[in-house]
Design a protein around this nucleic acid. Sequence first.
DNA 1: CTGTGTGAAGGCTTTCACAGCC
DNA 2: GGCTGTGAAAGCCTTCACACAG
Lengths: 206, 206
Amino acid sequence: MQKLVIPRKTVYRLSLYYRALQRLRTNNIETVSSAALATAAGVKPTQLRKDLTYFGNFGTRGLGYNVEALSRRLTEALGTTQLQPVILVGAGNLGSALLRYPGFAKEGFEVVAAFDAKPLRSREKELGIKVLPMTKLAQFVTEQRIKMAILTVPGNVAQEVTNELIASGVLAILNFAPIILQVPDNVVVNNVDLAIELENLSYFIQ
Amino acid sequence: MQKLVIPRKTVYRLSLYYRALQRLRTNNIETVSSAALATAAGVKPTQLRKDLTYFGNFGTRGLGYNVEALSRRLTEALGTTQLQPVILVGAGNLGSALLRYPGFAKEGFEVVAAFDAKPLRSREKELGIKVLPMTKLAQFVTEQRIKMAILTVPGNVAQEVTNELIASGVLAILNFAPIILQVPDNVVVNNVDLAIELENLSYFIQ
DNA sequence: CTGTGTGAAGGCTTTCACAGCC
DNA sequence: GGCTGTGAAAGCCTTCACACAG
């Protein structure tokens, strides 16, 4: 399966489809048309169908898609079949909140450890997880073969921490720091910048 | 100025440029080349220049851009010249963290009120803001002419709350609920879905 | 007759190549 | 010489139109 051929945007939408399918599953719906699923995912039906053809033909003409089967195929494609361990670096305001956020576990990610320059912060409420000092970071990542990290450190140390993560073997970073991280080609970064999202909205309501 | 001509992606990148410019400003750098600014913003120099031409010519050939002037022009374009009041709906884990998050204020947004179905939660630590019951939402939005809202309610009530926001006059929503909101054409929604971002990363490290 | 699968067309963005100005 | 500004080309993604299967 040559996954390099699949457009980035398609991959992103696969997650949207998967989400929508989960809702259908909990409602015990067995079959869904591209029109219905597309609406739930916020895209056009033709786009949904086109996206799915990158992975094969799962639909039944005249009927639609089997929710269960399509759902399973998407987890395979996304690589979320087995639980993926993740670490979180920077247990400040945002970091702590994310540790308590149930959304990750629900989607198959387990935050296995958190790191902070001042690990004593952990007192402030059971986060349900150990907060380790930064000095333990490299060893932990290497030994546990961690591949994914959530980065919620201040912008001025983000690049430095990133370098350490990459040196230890991390391949994917979800970055909340308001900085463009410089990383080698084999490392993927997704940026979530809350202030920029607001700023962007602000443009459209002028 | 016909702003409808400007590509969405360009608008988004303007924020990145603005960010990078702020850093240069604090370092008292007066002039910057498209190459340097592009690197800081994570884009190609030609793209940066192309993006800027949508707003006019600010560069000096052979020299670069004046940091101060370009910076000012970008705030104008983005509509962040004056402080924009924002409300937050849903003061749970994530919502509370965002209330304490300094990033918004730093970029010119003031969260003027928070709303929650169970406003008593507010006790849990001074959030530095009143948490009002949902019953006060419509009146507040109307009276204060609020245009922007951050939505951090559970997915199953997100659409319902959205309808209320829109009916009261909100035009832009930063949505953290894992749902595609159905809104009229004159309303803008930006989605931030943390689980999907992780899922997306997971695909690329297979 | 309904709804998928898909080559082809269309539209949008990015990148190139180079003219133009300091 | 250095760096911006920009039409033109290339690339990418979305949408259309319709063949085809149940």
